[in-house]
Computed example of a mutant assay.
Amino acid sequence: MSEQIWALDSHHQYEQNHFFYGEGCVQDLTSLLDEIGAERPMLICGENVGANEFVMGRIDDAVGDRLVHIYKGVRSKTPESSADRGVELKREYDADCIISVGGGSASDTAKAIVAKDAEEGRSWDDLKATITDGGQLDVPPMPEPKDPVVAISTTLSAAEVSEAFGVTDFDNEERKVLVDEKVRSTACFYDPELAATTPSYTIASSGMNALDHAVEVRYSAVTGDNPFYQATAEKATTLLFENLEAAVLEDDEEAMEKVLYGSALSALGIIGGYCINHAMNHVVCGYHDISHGDGNSILLQHGIRYNFEAVPDRVMSIADAMGIEEGGSDEERLETMLSEIDSLQERLGVPRSMSEAGVDEMPDEHVREMAEHAAHDPGMAANPRPVDADAAFEILQDAW
């Protein structure tokens, strides 16, 4: 892991993404590609997005003749195999830029493609982040220069903002997290017209994931005292909590625009910001057929409750951002906040437990195995309250 040069409590630098936002903003893709010198971009997406004539037509108008290939092999949870195929196609078509269209899996696949292509000869295990026996995050260096990634978001995953990404080894039921500043999206596009074509449930599920981002940034041991990330996380929490229902259930265009911005803001500070919820979720989604958004929806309340004991003031700041009225003890206000989250989840139709997501009752030995993996996930390094296998076991049982 590279040496930390700046003291975390005295230095701040915002992420280097270029954000384009508002209706019709995707037309600016033309000038953006000119600016970064991308002459042979390859577009990647899933099959559903690739069949969306409105979305693909808008992007085709902006990219034009320079597009060398469209790879529709993006899959949920970013299987290593789909990323590896993307690397093969990037080399075959000599692409010099990857444009992702869709949600978190598209963004992660794009980052995985440019990373694996550049770090030739290294395996996913060579590149994955791990947590040491002492609880420190160990990130292998990836020194090779990377081709640019451009992200066009049609969900609220916010994966496009950060320099982290994940690939899934389904053979070993492992979600591998990788981190490289050079794969951070050069530009992110948030066009509400495009997002409005996404199925409502996907917006709901990915929206809960974005809300979870903001919550974790608020109470993380790394970002919890950073006033800049606290400001962006607070705004993200408010935008998402107040507008997600209208965006999903009422097709409200203004609400959709607000949750897109809330999603982008939620991921500022996510490196060092994500902790217990994401760490547990990597295991839940690795072992079971649960999407990343649904997993974080399930674990959201459990992470808040667990960390309240260690950082009650930070948890109460989350309640403030959600507009939970003051009054009574912090414990009473905590329960009111969790009840409000639960009510929002119920209205959106997203799962609040693994059983609601279709997971059968799990034997203790299965839960123990999941708990051991969760306790050693890289995300646990930033949690404000230590999480050992016993604590993870209890959370998983409660979350079922």
Rank of each mutant, 00 (worst) to 15 (best):
D390C: 02
N281I: 01
R305L: 12
G293W: 08
S291T: 14
L396Q: 03
Q136A: 15
V179C: 09
D65N: 11
N52V: 06
T237D: 04
D84Y: 12
T154L: 15
K235E: 15
K258E: 15
G303Q: 06
V63N: 06
D251T: 02
S31Q: 13
A196P: 02
A279Y: 04
E160T: 04
A371C: 02
Q301D: 06
I70E: 10
S185V: 01
M56H: 05
M380C: 07
R333F: 12
A7I: 09
N243F: 11
E335M: 11
G121S: 11
I395H: 02
E174S: 14
A51Y: 02
T198N: 05
D212F: 00
T78G: 06
D171H: 11
V259W: 02
G328T: 01
S200N: 13
E346M: 10
E253Q: 14
A158F: 13
F308R: 01
W124A: 02
S185G: 12
A196R: 11
Q4G: 04
D125L: 14
S355Q: 11
E35Q: 14
D126M: 05
Y14R: 10
A195H: 00
V87T: 03
S220N: 07
L67S: 02
W400C: 08
H302Q: 01
A264G: 00
K182M: 10
A214C: 09
S185T: 01
K235S: 14
R58K: 15
S205M: 10
L348P: 08
V311N: 01
I131Q: 12
I203E: 01
L194N: 06
L239V: 04
E88A: 15
A279I: 04
H11I: 10
L344Q: 10
I152V: 15
L178K: 04
R175N: 14
L265D: 04
D388Y: 07
D65Q: 13
S157Y: 08
T168S: 15
P199A: 09
R385M: 15
K235H: 10
D61M: 13
V283R: 02
A129N: 08
V149L: 05
A279V: 06
R347G: 03
G327Y: 04
I99G: 00
C97M: 09
E23N: 03
V367R: 07
S317A: 14
E257R: 09
D313R: 01
S100T: 13
E47A: 15
P192H: 10
R58M: 15
L344N: 02
E356V: 10
E35K: 11
K235A: 14
D251R: 07
D313A: 12
A246W: 03
I99F: 11
I341K: 09
Y219A: 05
Q230W: 08
